[in-house]
Amino acid sequence: MSINRVIPIAGDTLVAGCYRRETSLEYSLAFDLALPASLAGPLLAVLSAPELTVELLKRVTGPIHLAVCEWMKPSTSIAQFVPWAQSDLKAVRWQEAAGSYTQLLWAEPEAQAASEIAAALRRAALPGATLYVIASGPLRRWLPAWQRPPFPAQQPLNAGGVVAALNVTGWEVESRIAFHGPRSIAWSWMYRLAEAFGRPDLGDRCLFAMRATYQEPGWLWPLAPLALIRARAS
């Protein structure tokens, strides 16, 4: 598992600090898959923490609309993210968002009000729109992002809860992927064993195998730290 480190610099801004944070492989793959290079129209995103905004700025070359969330206070205004964006970045209220979007993202849903947000996302979506949800699972504490605050969410909802919320709010779940499941966890332990026994050559091969088995079927989400869910507005 790759490290998730913050490179401190004097007088650094929140955005620069977030930008420099090396994203662990699980989150990196999840955001990569959820955010294709070119999107048709603006992306509507619901993010549980300001740090997650940077993952969008890194990848999305078109307009990004952030649904107004709890963390959008003056001290963490999205204005500071704007100079780093590759296109327009703005906050939108749910009332403005109705029936406008074909691409939606929900990263690290909070358990509190999950059904309400799922329903609001459905109202914001055009028929046939695609929603990606990135949700950590019971093994999230193994992820670097969850080992010290600020955490990506305060009361995270796991993939099972997300699917339940989507199913009752007009979303049809099409596919699920789990990241860093049992196979890759086993390979990572074999890597550590090989290194401990002075066989870095075998260790490197195990590390390669770990990466090659990083994506697992979605039903394994209880045994993986992160999951990606794709749903379509029905």
């Binding site: 790759s2 492989l25 990569d32 290079a37 990848r59 070359t61 990466r211």
Partner: peptide, 9 residues
């Protein structure tokens, strides 16, 4: 060290 196959920007 790692592949970057999904992000192609």
């Amino acid at each position: 060290w790692r592949d970057c196959l999904h992000f192609t920007g």
